[in-house]
């Protein structure tokens, strides 16, 4: 853990050297999150709710997704580099250093557009939380936080898992991970708008539904609220799967010829 933050800190400093790039990345992150807000505001100017979800509730979904999606560029950006590391045989270096490989790989980059995601996502979620009708007790807050951390863990685990697929799929680009990331973007809306097949796939096949939808269903007391309480279990399973995949992947790793 300490090694990870040391590496990450070093990369943060080196990234900040390029001030213009830093500014552009943060602005780009801000803009994309703001688009979601503009879209929701524009449609809710016309209708009072979608499938029983009010404006504030939809903003909460989008905001929570913004925060969680912003965590991965800030803390897990290095994962996106693993496909070319495998491809070029660059994984040799982390493997022979006396520190966990995962910490070295994951901390090897930092994506500052995550700052933009966090700012806008955080503001959206922060505002929405004060607007939705939830009876706050210490217990609600505690469970809410647990569900949020679990949801973030699920997201980060699956970013890891799909990038690790590069151990089995040759090529220098993490195509599967990019595709799945685009698909995960669909959970920025309440899942009820999608057809049954898609909802089932997002629950059972790849648990993206637990990244925003089910935790918030529990918080807001909507139908299937109990399913939200499964989030920590799903999170444990995801983290285990990510670690397992990492170990199996490293066993498969063949360096490029020297």
């Amino acid at each position: 853990m300490r090694v990870y933050f040391r590496i990450l800190g070093a990369h943060l400093r080196s990234t900040l050297e390029y001030e213009a790039d830093f500014a552009i990345m943060v602005v780009a992150g801000l803009l994309f999150q703001l688009l979601n807000l503009v879209f929701l505001s524009a449609i809710f100017a016309q209708v009072p709710h979608i499938n029983g979800w009010t404006y504030a509730e939809c903003v909460l979904v989008a905001g929570m997704y913004g925060i969680i999606a912003g965590l991965s560029p800030l803390f897990f950006e290095g994962m996106w580099s693993i496909s070319w590391r495998i491809n070029k045989g660059e994984l040799d270096y982390p493997l022979i250093r006396p520190a966990p490989v995962a910490a070295q790989v994951i901390g090897s980059r930092i994506g500052l557009h995550g700052v933009g995601d966090l700012i806008v996502g955080g503001s959206m979620a922060g505002w929405a939380v004060t607007q939705v009708s939830v009876s706050w007790t210490p217990l609600t807050v505690a469970i809410g936080l647990l569900l949020f951390v679990s949801a973030a863990a699920i997201h980060l685990s699956f970013v890891t898992i799909f990038n690790l697929a590069s151990f089995w799929i040759p090529g220098p680009h993490p195509f599967l991970a990019i595709t799945m990331h685009n698909i995960e973007d669909m959970v920025r809306y309440p899942l009820t708008i999608y057809g049954q097949g898609l909802r089932l796939a997002f629950t059972v096949l790849v648990p993206f539904a637990f990244v925003t939808f089910f935790p918030l269903v529990w918080l807001l007391g909507k139908p299937f609220a109990w399913a939200g309480l499964l989030t920590p279990v799903v999170a444990l399973w995801s983290v285990w799967l990510a670690r397992f995949t990492f170990r199996r992947g490293l066993l498969r790793y063949e360096s490029s010829g020297h």
Binding site: Y18, D21, I24, M25, A28, L31
Partner: peptide, 11 residues
């Protein structure tokens, strides 16, 4: 003028 295209492309 920049040293990275990703941010420009996203913006």
């Amino acid at each position: 003028w920049t040293s990275n295209y990703m941010g420009v492309a996203w913006a």
